[in-house]
Design a protein around this nucleic acid. Sequence first.
DNA 1: TTAATTGATACTAATATAGTATCAGTTTAG
DNA 2: CTAAACTGATACTATATTAGTATCAATTAA
Lengths: 142, 142
Amino acid sequence: MKVLTKNTDYAIRALLALSAKKGSYLSAKSIATEHDIPYQFLRRLLQEMIRHNLIVSKEGVQGGFMMQKDPDEITVTELIEIFQGKVQVSECMFRKQICGNRARCVLRHEIMRIERVVQSEFEKVTIGKLLRDLEAASQVNQ
Amino acid sequence: MKVLTKNTDYAIRALLALSAKKGSYLSAKSIATEHDIPYQFLRRLLQEMIRHNLIVSKEGVQGGFMMQKDPDEITVTELIEIFQGKVQVSECMFRKQICGNRARCVLRHEIMRIERVVQSEFEKVTIGKLLRDLEAASQVNQ
DNA sequence: TTAATTGATACTAATATAGTATCAGTTTAG
DNA sequence: CTAAACTGATACTATATTAGTATCAATTAA
Ligand code: FES
Ligand code: FES
């Protein structure tokens, strides 16, 4: 069971890179090279993040991408939802033919509870927090 | 992001059916029909559960499957691990080339923490618990 | 002895994930 | 002015995972 897929993973790294250079434009190429992310793949992820107003872009020479949304406001939950879809109970749990009575389904009930736990945990992890932790860790190691 | 896939889902239902008739053999066919699970698919799941000593089987006419392990000792975590593999951080997080320093990777650290939370939540949910809840709910609704 | 069953395993189909390629449009440095 | 460095948009391919089907041999109870 994979919690984060590559796209979410890459997106997080790209956001960390952009947050570290907040206020200036970084090209997709430089991010891809520095973080070993497939270039064209990354470009699609960046465009998706523009659509969600996490970042902005500037075209042309010296163009690139820049943070827009406050890193402290970007949660891993949000990124998972963008790139892997909303956390969901397996579909079959919602087919009336199976349960007869959705409201009565204990399994569904338990899983929704856990779902909420997972979401709230991932919500505690923001890009801002990760960045600060990363900086703190790199200082210790110097 | 799917938490439970069909195989885990079907396995849980099959176990609930078997637990409800603890001590007697139920055929794959009857479980499949009653719970609307694809017959051949279910058979493979049942065999997998035999290999993990959750259930036992009897061949031939009047044969079928029967619970072996105590339903209270079967957690959803265990079933997820059997059918969807151990919950894991995305692989790239472990490739030295990327992080440079695994021990220093904050993202990995955070995700492993959440992973533990998810696991411990799913461990609270056992087949035995689900069965009791199910029985309680069906009485209320009668 | 035959019909109902599991054991084992191979196969197909559908979907999701991962990665590549292409071309048009924009911008700035020279 | 123009070439090079960029993004926008989108189509394409490859691989892996999930879901489901099919087949045939072996077992067993009636
Ligand atoms: S199995 Fe359908 S809602 Fe639970
Ligand atoms: S990205 Fe490699 S261990 Fe975190």
